[in-house]
Simulated scan of single mutants.
Amino acid sequence: MWRRTLSGLFCLGIVACETAPPVPTEMEPAAFEQAVGEARDKPHPWSTIQAYTDLLDSGRLSQGQRLEALFARGSARRQARINLPGAVQDLEEAQALAGADSPLIENIATEIEYAKTDWGRAAGKLEGLQTLPEWFNSKVAMGGLPEAAERYRESDLAPSPDQVSLLEAAGYLCRTAGASDETWTVTEEAEHLEGLEWCENPGVS
């Protein structure tokens, strides 16, 4: 009886081992540098940030590579003022990985200081009165792009060219030949809105 039980457990162990998902292999240095270069060359900071996110989520980075990717994403978020709380989180994680002897340690500390200062300013602005474009920018800075995009969608007001670039890169505005001229309530020149309308699946398209 015991032999049969042990034999069954052994067989189950073999099946489990055979069906276990493979462990991702660590990314080669050349492949990592290529991925970082491609992320840096994206046409919009949002796309750059997403490319770094995909890299960090791959499970293939060494500790040194993760440090570099976190620093790059945190810096990109801070400079573009897209999700400043996320920038601080990235940079503080990078700081914890770096160690006192890292050549990046001083740059990381400086970026954290800048990101925290910008975060405080954005949070303060949200507490005061703002126009919709101003509120949108502050909300994006605080990591609230979905809510900010929805507010614009409901208002029928036209985003600025910079805001349109972000909304298109993030999948909230889509280009279509059949875009309606009535999509927007426009009071100024709006060439940057030509061929654009709100995506059916916002944030995904």
Rank of each mutant, 00 (worst) to 15 (best):
S138L: 00
D41F: 05
D101T: 10
S58P: 02
C199W: 03
A109M: 06
A123P: 00
M27W: 11
R153K: 13
G120Q: 15
K116T: 12
L145M: 04
Y114K: 13
W135V: 02
E26W: 11
T48E: 14
L173T: 07
T183C: 04
A122V: 03
A169L: 08
P22Y: 11
R66E: 15
A20P: 02
E18Q: 12
R60D: 03
E197A: 12
G124M: 07
P24K: 09
E92Q: 15
L129A: 14
G144Q: 05
R121P: 00
A179F: 10
V23D: 09
A123V: 10
I82M: 13
L12P: 07
F10S: 12
S165N: 03
L132A: 04
V88I: 15
L55N: 06
P24T: 08
E68C: 07
M142T: 01
R4K: 09
G203I: 07
P21H: 09
E92L: 15
L70H: 13
P146Y: 01
F71R: 09
T5H: 12
D101S: 14
Y114E: 13
Y52L: 08
A141I: 01
W135I: 01
P146I: 01
Q95V: 06
G144I: 00
E18R: 11
L129Y: 09
S155I: 05
A190D: 12
T176P: 00
I82K: 08
E194K: 09
T176K: 05
L84V: 06
Q95M: 14
G86M: 04
Q65T: 09
L167H: 00
L129E: 14
W184F: 15
Q63I: 14
R4M: 10
A51K: 01
T110W: 08
E168L: 02
G128T: 13
